[in-house]
């Protein structure tokens, strides 16, 4: 009875953090009468690679009301990756320096993070004290759909890809790709050709015939056009802006595609794992990619692609609840 009274007074509460390029996303949850409900979602910018004082105050306000709140962070550390073994000896054979990492084993695979990045994650949240730091590979392992063959599961966070490859449901390969760390897109010949093709399709002068040339206005009409000019200029400017934005989006999508492709190539070329042809790909999307990328993957990588939008923080919370 006293336990229930305490539960009602101080219900289980959680705050989930995840880092994005713009700063830190924060979601507060409360377990009220058995169901975990979202209280509030907020985003904060970082100040000198630390959480802002505004965010500290925000979290402390919640902590003062719910002192038993668990602070959970899904790490974004670049050193965080995963391998298909729990044996340190086998990890050493895969060129993983086990002396400078913290490893957590889950079933038959393990995820690791460098002790320095782990310390950085803790420092990032000073003066708050985190309770849990989870690897995104464990999140992928919990959220993924089952597939009988070789499947690539890709968790897409803004500017980050967590790539896990499973064979018969068993984890065999993991890769953590940070998009901003990729080489400049223009240097990627293959992806560059794709963009050129797209642009050529819109502006190929060779494809214009005589009737099209007749439709062009004479030079005499230019003065008239100047009179009507202002509104047209504005419309053109907007169209140009839209095109620029589309191009940026397309560039990002292509970077994602390129990263996935590179990761698959690395997987195929990795002698430490038993490579197999990737038959299925599931993209767990937290940002909303454009549909074009799925078509591109289907056409270029020749595998079945499914995508699923997930609530990242909710899934992290579910992982933590399952883990404790």
């Amino acid at each position: 009875m006293i336990k229930n009274w305490f539960k009602n007074l101080w219900p289980d509460s959680y705050i989930v953090f995840s880092q994005v390029p713009e700063g830190m996303n924060v979601t507060e949850y409360i377990n009220s009468s058995g169901s975990v409900e979202t209280v509030e979602e907020e985003s904060f910018v970082l100040e000198d690679d630390r959480i802002s004082t505004e965010m500290v105050e925000y979290v402390r306000d919640f902590l003062s009301a719910y002192p038993k709140t668990q602070l959970i962070y899904l790490t974004s550390a670049q050193s965080c990756s995963a391998v298909g073994t729990c044996s340190k000896a086998e990890m050493a054979q895969m060129d993983v320096d086990t002396s400078i990492i913290k490893t957590i084993c889950k079933g038959e695979f393990s995820s690791y993070i460098s002790t320095m990045d782990l310390e950085n994650d803790n420092m990032l949240f000073k003066p708050l004290e985190l309770d849990y730091i989870y690897s995104p590979f464990f999140l992928v392992d919990e959220v993924k759909s089952d597939y009988p063959g070789t499947a690539l599961i890709c968790l897409h966070r803004q500017n980050q890809l967590i790539i896990s490859i499973y064979k018969e449901g068993k984890f065999i390969y993991g890769d953590h790709v940070v998009i901003s760390a990729l080489e400049e897109f223009e240097e990627d010949q293959e992806a560059g050709e794709e963009i050129e093709d797209d642009l050529d399709a819109d502006f190929d002068l060779d494809e214009l015939d005589d009737s099209d040339l007749d439709d062009l206005d004479d030079l005499d009409d230019i003065e008239e056009m100047e009179d009507e000019g202002m509104e047209d200029d504005l419309e053109e400017q907007i169209e140009e802006d839209d095109m620029e934005q589309d191009a940026e989006l397309k560039e990002y999508d292509l970077k994602i595609y390129s990263a996935i492709k590179e990761s698959i190539e690395k997987f195929y070329g990795d002698e430490s794992v038993q490579s197999d042809f990737v038959e299925y790909m599931e993209i767990l999307d937290t940002v909303a990619l454009s549909r074009n990328i799925y078509e591109l993957i289907k056409d270029e990588i020749f595998c079945e692609v499914d995508s699923r939008n997930i609530d990242l923080h909710r899934e992290v919370l579910e992982l933590m609840l399952k883990d404790t």
């Binding site: 709140t69 782990l118 849990y132």
Partner: peptide, 15 residues
């Protein structure tokens, strides 16, 4: 006891 977290949660005090 969390098995999958890289860190161990500290004991929470209500006060």
């Amino acid at each position: 006891m969390a098995k999958l977290s890289f860190i161990t949660p500290k004991k929470k005090s209500l006060l």
